[in-house]
C-alpha cells in the first residue's frame, strides 16, 4: 500500500513536470508556408531570376531543428519557355522539392532585439542528390514571429544538374540562392 502511494506521488510529480515543460515550450516553434526564395542565373551578358513565394519553413528552437522546402514547380523565371526548361533540367516530375533539414550551429536568442547572425548546417537535397551544407544568415525575432534571411551559392555540378544552354552558351554553374521568410509562432 505504501509502495503504491509513493509510486502515485512520483508519477503525479512527473506528469506535472511534463505538463510544465510542454507549456513552457509551446511558443518556441515557428512555421510559415509563404516564404520567398529566389535564384539568380548568369550567362555572359545576361542574367535571369527565378522566384517562388511558396517556400515552406519550420523552426523548432527547443528541438533545434530547421526545416525548409519549396516545390520547384512554383519557381517563376518570367518566361514560360525558360520555366519549362528549368523544370526539365531539375527533373521536377521526379524530384519536385528542394529541401533543407538541419540545425542552428548556435541557437539565436529570442530575447534579443534586431537581426542576429546565425549559421545552420544540415542536409540540402535537390535533384535527388543530398549534400551537407552550412548556410549563413540572419534571424530576427519580432512581434509577428521569426524572420529568417539567408543566401548561399549552389553549384549545379554538385547536384548532378546539367547547366542548361542558351544556344551554345551554358548557364553559369554557380547559382546565387537567397531566401526570406517570416515564420509565425505555432
Amino acid at each position: 500500500m505504501m509502495y503504491g502511494r509513493t509510486l502515485f506521488r512520483a508519477a503525479s510529480a512527473f506528469l506535472g513536470l511534463m505538463l510544465m515543460v510542454a507549456g513552457s515550450v509551446s511558443g518556441q516553434a515557428f512555421q510559415h508556408d509563404g516564404g520567398h526564395v529566389e535564384f539568380v542565373s548568369n550567362v555572359p551578358l545576361h542574367s535571369f531570376t527565378g522566384v517562388s513565394d511558396k517556400l515552406v519553413g519550420r523552426i523548432d528552437l527547443d528541438g533545434n531543428t530547421v526545416d525548409f522546402y519549396v516545390d520547384l514547380n512554383t519557381l517563376d523565371t518570367g518566361n514560360g519557355k525558360r520555366d519549362k526548361d528549368m523544370r526539365k533540367t531539375l527533373d521536377t516530375a521526379k524530384y519536385p522539392f528542394a529541401e533543407f533539414f538541419g540545425a542552428f550551429s548556435t541557437l539565436p536568442d529570442p530575447q534579443r532585439a534586431g537581426p542576429q547572425d546565425v549559421e545552420v548546417s544540415g542536409r540540402f537535397t535537390i535533384h535527388g542528390v543530398t549534400k551537407t551544407i552550412r548556410v549563413p544568415g540572419t534571424a530576427t525575432f519580432g512581434p509577428q514571429g521569426l524572420r529568417i534571411q539567408a543566401a548561399w551559392i549552389l553549384r549545379l555540378d554538385d547536384y548532378n544538374i546539367e547547366p542548361p544552354s542558351l544556344l551554345i552558351i551554358k548557364v553559369d554553374d554557380e547559382q546565387e540562392i537567397s531566401l526570406d521568410i517570416l515564420l509565425k509562432p505555432e
Binding site: 515543460v21 515550450v25 509551446s26 523548432d60 527547443d62 531543428t65 522546402y69 516545390d71 512554383t74 519536385p96
Partner: peptide
C-alpha cells in the same frame, strides 16, 4: 502537445 522535431511532410504546391 509537445512540439515535434521531425521533418514536416512535403506537400506539393499549386504551380502555374
Amino acid at each position: 502537445i509537445l512540439p515535434s522535431s521531425a521533418q514536416m511532410d512535403r506537400q506539393r504546391a499549386v504551380a502555374q
